[in-house]
Design a protein around this nucleic acid. Structure first.
Length: 611
RNA sequence: GGCCUCGUAGCAUAACUGGAUAAUGCACUUGACUACGAAUCAAGCGAUUACAGGUUCGAAUCCUGUCGAGGUCACCA
């Protein structure tokens, strides 16, 4: 419809006013709610160019549109805006189209592959609120791309190596007394996380004791800067202490070296402990309703990329310093000089990422790759993509960093050191408890068996949590109030589910097939609004994919549900004035339910049939 | 300090990506269950879109400056 209006307007302007205009340059918007009309053409640009009265110009164009476009019913001109109203018949046809399309909004397969990376946890800590946002975004964007016709490969890279995991291993060996997640009755990831924390605690004690004894004091007196307090000095010295003096630090580094040398015992312990963690993660993923198509482990990828460095050196993309380290100059992109290989020839983070991208492209042929990573890494990905472009990677334009803002608590930032991290499992359990309580109060589920009740409660709880997070524009930093995520009323996931449940309930009471409604001609305001809302859906999907942002879709689902709730209050369905009206409203309700269910599904939210 | 984000009612978020009188929810005040499900609906209260300039017919949105918040500037990942 928009293109038709653009074409006609451009033609009128070109032919009648000798004002050549590109159809695509004509601004056509949906008319504001409180103004009569459906589509609005913005006339200001032409008013100026033609030095014409906007009302006059609008009337002329409007008249032409009316005669050229059968579905146009009337028009009005307000200031420089030409508002076109479309006929009820047009909207009935629109509904018919939606009704006949079982996969409304879904595009046919385009044969292109896109790889979406998300979650990407460390194996020494359980998942937390930040991961939840990451996972929901990654999952949802994956689903939306799938809906847009892509073949999507959902993947994650697990950071399962390095000094951090060695700390957990050491703590387990020293203080674990052979315990396992099973014997302790703790989920594997939490079990390991506990040992990581224990390491840090013991290390802190050790460091503190050292500071107070002679050895520490000597170092302080010898190495301090002038005017540096003891406290400041030791804070800054912590890493050096870990690397040079600490017994615990030495032991964990020893483990790391053994790991790198392929020591059998160390690898066995590492495998065992990682398996515990993976099992824990998988439980959380399952609870969140997500899964992955492929996995990458840093232990496999951390050496990748070196050969690309060599090739880049040969091609003159990189340069070598005297000490043997390899760099790239990105100053032409307003980025800095960036290290890509250490002087001892070992990899850095960037080396590894270069290697991993190349590997993924070789393995899958994906021409687009989306990295779901928090915005603190904006710089890193800018640099990575710039490097890939300079290396001449054919897919470099298809690389995208799905950067999202950190999640803050009402009390401020989440800090693991201060114990203010919101654990993913704990949070989900809390929301579930709240959903159970409200369901219990309402009593609608009492006739169902326990298993059915639990499934519904689970869906309501997940809807509340997921919608709460996904409705916020991805790149924006957001404040997460755990209390508000427990809300089930107002602008929430359960509100949307409720609209669906109402429809399901009406349909249960309707007996027999829904008949014809072609006789129902004059549509009510509430019915028209619903069709207009439904008609937006394909555009919403497209823009969500274009901007890598499910929040469009989330807000759309809310608006559709809201429009339906209003319709439901204003209009009788099963006891409608005529049979045709009843059939029409049933059809309309079914389409709303269909779109709500699909839209929410794309965000990983399931609809209950009752609640 | 350089670079990158972001400042919208008490709070949390929208605004079709430059369009009309800045929208929604929470909270607060009212009203609507003998009604196809009240996790709902209707009405009210609440904003100089951080501030100051500029561009434009038109700015929350673009440009400049100021103030404020965060991130990042590792031979860590």
């Amino acid at each position: 419809m928009i293109t038709e209006l653009q074409t006609i307007t451009a033609r009128v302007l070109s032919e009648k006013f000798d004002c050549p205009t590109e159809p695509s340059s004509v601004a056509v918007n949906l008319t504001k709610d409180d103004i009569e009309g459906d589509y609005t053409i913005v006339l200001f640009p032409y008013v100026k160019r033609l030095a014409k009265n906007p009302i006059e110009l609008g009337n002329l164009i409007g008249a032409d549109i009316l005669s050229a476009l059968p579905s146009a019913k009337s028009f009005n001109v307000l200031k420089g805006f030409l508002n076109i109203s479309l006929s009820d018949d047009y909207y009935k046809t629109l509904l018919k189209g939606i009704s006949e399309d079982a996969d409304y909004g879904r595009r046919s397969r385009n044969g292109k592959k896109v790889m979406v990376e998300f979650s990407s946890p460390n194996t020494n800590k359980p998942l937390h609120l930040g991961h939840i946002r990451n996972i929901l975004l990654g999952w949802s964007v994956s689903q939306i791309f799938d809906e847009m016709g892509y073949d999507v490969i959902k993947t994650q890279i697990v950071n399962n190596r390095g000094i951090a995991i060695c700390k957990s291993m050491l703590a387990w060996s020293e203080f674990g007394e052979g315990a396992t997640p099973e014997s302790a009755g703790v989920k594997g990831d939490h079990f390991i996380g506990k040992f990581y924390v224990e390491f840090e605690t013991k290390f802190k004690e050790e460091y503190k004791a050292w500071q107070e004894n002679d050895a520490g004091q000597v170092v302080y007196q010898e190495s301090k800067k002038t005017d540096q307090s003891q406290e400041e000095f030791f804070k800054a010295y912590k890493n050096t202490y870990f690397n040079t003096h600490s017994e615990l630090g030495g032991k964990s580094k020893e483990i790391l070296i053994k790991w790198e040398n392929g020591d059998k015992d160390v690898l066995a312990q590492w495998n065992m402990m990682n398996d515990w963690v993976y099992a824990g993660f998988n439980q959380t993923y399952e609870n969140m309703g997500v899964h992955f198509d492929s996995m990458y482990y840093e232990s496999d990828t951390y050496l990748l990329g070196k050969k690309h460095i060599e090739k880049g050196l040969a091609d003159g993309v990189f340069y070598k310093k005297e000490d043997g380290s390899v760099w790239i100059d990105l100053e032409d992109q307003k980025l800095d000089q960036k290290l890509v290989l250490r002087s001892d020839g070992t990899s850095v983070y960037m080396t590894q990422d270069i290697g991993t991208v190349e590997q993924r492209y070789e393995e899958t042929g994906a021409e687009r790759m989306i990295y779901t990573v928090a915005d603190e890494q904006d710089y890193h990905f800018k640099a990575l993509f710039a490097i890939m472009k300079k290396l001449g990677a054919p897919y470099s334009d298809g690389l995208h960093h799905l950067s999202y803002g950190m999640v803050d608590l009402p009390t401020g930032k989440m800090k693991s050191r201060e114990g203010t991290v919101v654990d993913a499992d704990v949070l989900m359990a809390e929301v579930e408890e709240e959903a159970r309580a409200s369901a219990g109060e309402r009593g609608e589920l009492s006739e169902l068996n326990e298993k059915e009740q639990e499934q519904i409660i689970d869906r309501i709880a997940k809807a509340a949590l997921k919608f709460f997070i996904l409705r916020v524009t991805a790149k924006k930093r957001m404040v997460f109030d755990p209390k508000e995520s427990l809300d089930m009323q107002g602008q929430t996931g359960p509100y949307i589910q409720n609209a669906y449940v109402r429809i399901a309930s009406v349909l249960r009471k309707q007996e027999g097939k829904i008949g014809d409604h072609s006789e129902y001609i004059e549509l009510k305001e509430e019915e028209l609004s619903l069709i207009k809302e439904l008609a937006k859906y394909p555009d919403i999907l497209e823009s969500s994919a274009k901007h890598y942002d499910p929040s469009n879709l989330a807000n759309f689902c809310y608006n559709l549900a809201k429009t339906y709730h209003r319709f439901y209050h204003e209009v009788r369905i099963l006891t409608a004035e005529t049979e045709a009206a009843k059939n029409f409203r049933l059809d309309l309700s079914i389409q709303v339910a269909k779109v709500l269910k699909r839209g929410m599904y794309l965000m990983g939210i399931e609809m209950p049939e009752r609640m």
